[in-house]
Amino acid sequence: MSDTTTGGPPRPLSVGDIVVGPNDLLGEWVAAQITSIDANWKKVGVLDLSWSGPVPSSTVDLGVIEPLVLTHNSWNGRLSYVNCDWVLPRSFHFLGSLPLIHEQPSNSYTSIWTVGYQLARQRAWDRGERDWNEPGELEMTPADLANALADGAPVQSDVRSLKSTGLSEVDCLRIVSTFPNLTRLTLGGNLGQVTNAGMLNKLGRLRDLFISNLFGMTKSDCLLPIEIPHLEYLYLDSVPHEYASAMRRRWRSEAANGTSVSITKARKPEWVQENLENPLRDWDGREHISSGRFKKAVAQFQKTRSEVLEVLSAYQNELTLGRLENIGREYAIAFNRLDGRSPFIETEEREELFAALACVMDESELELGRPLEAERLALLSGVEDARDW
Rank of each mutant, 00 (worst) to 15 (best):
A31V: 02
D38K: 00
A386S: 06
K202S: 13
L353F: 14
G216H: 01
L319S: 08
V20C: 02
S291H: 11
L276S: 06
N23C: 05
L357P: 12
E254R: 14
V60H: 13
C172P: 10
S161C: 06
K219R: 10
W389M: 04
P154E: 08
S14H: 03
V15N: 00
A39L: 07
A150Y: 07
A299H: 11
P240I: 00
E373Y: 06
D48A: 11
E274F: 07
V298C: 11
F294C: 07
I65C: 07
E365F: 03
E287A: 12
R78Y: 08
W75T: 03
S260G: 11
T183V: 09
R387N: 03
T35L: 02
S290P: 04
K42Q: 14
Q156G: 06
R249P: 06
T71Q: 05
R252K: 14
L191V: 08
I175H: 10
T165S: 13
D17Q: 01
D48T: 11
A332F: 15
G382I: 02
D17R: 02
R90W: 00
C84Q: 13
K202V: 08
L62G: 04
V44Y: 10
R184E: 10
L138W: 12
S168K: 08
G166H: 08
R127Y: 03
C84D: 13
Q300L: 15
E384S: 12
L187K: 03
W113L: 00
L100T: 07
G45F: 12
S381T: 15
Q302W: 13
D151W: 04
F210C: 04
I211F: 00
S14G: 00
E227T: 03
A153S: 15
G192P: 02
L62I: 07
L145C: 06
G198M: 02
L162G: 03
G216F: 03
T165G: 11
A120C: 04
P10E: 00
D237M: 10
R323W: 14
L231S: 05
K296S: 11
D151R: 03
I226F: 06
E129A: 07
K163H: 11
G285N: 07
I345E: 09
